[in-house]
Design a protein around this nucleic acid. Structure first.
Lengths: 203, 203
DNA sequence: TGTTGATATGAACATTGTTCAGAAATATCT
DNA sequence: AGATATTTCTGAACAATGTTCATATCAACA
């Protein structure tokens, strides 16, 4: 059994990720502290920096897991949709619910910043692609007039529009929607956008 | 001259706001440091806390000024519009340009958070209303079928949708639009939404 | 079992926002 | 004008934070 060392190393990393996730759930991204995470994971402060590059990278690892959960949820939501409009409605609804049910984790997906000059690793950037990939095929059906390049841009725009509505509401900003209206307004937005898309595709 | 004291006090506060604004422009909201601000304003570190409640409140004051600039820009942009569609296009375009031209200040409007438990003062929350007020009358023309309550909700949703597109792009997230496509995609979004709104109003 | 290389420890450091006792400046009173 | 009181400014000290590093500990192997 020559891998006891690697096992412990992987175990510590997993415990740190779980602890960070729990801390974010309880206190939000801004409330994530190195000391609280290591205490929760049952290791010394310095161990964090041998298991992981630094606290920011730990957040990236938590966000990576959240993104995979979200991707699964969206893929599942759209599985049995009967047409492009129903599919986009199902996606938007599931996205909204995921955000509501996992608020601090979901917010950390979009509010985490790296210090000036640092970049997110490529593998993590790529993980975001699922958010667009689930939209593209259905948007394509609504807009057969668009080329594939324009379509990808439009998918980004479509995602960002729905995302913006959810984000402002969950931030609790003055301009955001009251929580009680969020689901209905997201549905109304998608309805408006699909109606508009069909109208424009018609010429 | 019994107001020399008040004058100096107001002057220090103004210098601090200007310094904070400049620091945010140069280094972003996350790069705003109490020591850098006070050095720039030409006062001691502690003076900040006699002129202003704390660093967060200083950000609120900067944001307040930015919000007024933005309000002026939007009001101006929509002044000579020939119809609701043109008005909404003009608003969205001006909003996008303002964000691009004042990126760090505009980002600080939406990324500044107060520590858990604290609330923004009411007067500052109210300042955000202009972002919705400029939309409502034109949206009302597109959707005469909606009551005034639904209309206000729809204005929040409409704003949030356009805002979301700009925000994700300016954050430089993977799912955000490339800068070069931002203006065109915002226009396309507004076109889609107005077309959809007219279609839905028609019954 | 002793040696070696990796890992964990937690005290120490640097950088923050914030406070506070004393100094300086300003207003008020006689 | 001079004395007193009040407000404001100063910057050293403090607390909270992320990160590092010399040292101790541990696991693999000869």
């Amino acid at each position: 059994m020559g891998n006891n060392r690697d096992e412990k190393k992987a175990d510590l990393k997993a415990r740190l990720i779980a602890a960070a996730r729990a801390e974010i759930l309880e206190h939000g991204l801004a409330g994530l502290k190195a000391r609280a995470v290591t205490a929760r994971a049952g290791c010394a402060l310095g161990a964090l920096y041998t298991a992981v590059e630094d606290l920011d990278m730990l957040v990236v690892l938590v966000n990576s897991a959240t993104l995979q959960d979200l991707g699964r949820a969206l893929t599942e939501a759209v599985a049995g949709a009967s047409g492009p409009q129903a599919a986009l409605q199902a996606l938007a609804a599931r996205y909204t619910d995921f955000a509501l049910e996992n608020r601090p984790l979901w917010l950390s997906l979009f509010e985490h910043r790296l210090p000036e000059g640092r970049e997110f690793p490529d593998w993590h950037k790529q993980e975001h692609a699922v958010l667009l990939e689930v939209i593209v095929p259905h948007l394509a059906q609504l807009r057969p007039d668009l080329g594939s390049e324009a379509l990808l841009l439009r998918a980004r725009t479509t995602f960002a529009a729905a995302h913006g509505v959810v984000h402002l509401a969950l931030q609790g900003r003055f301009v955001g929607l009251p929580m009680a209206s969020l689901r209905a307004e997201v549905a109304a937005l998608v309805e408006t956008m699909t109606a508009g898309a069909m109208q424009l595709a018609r010429g």
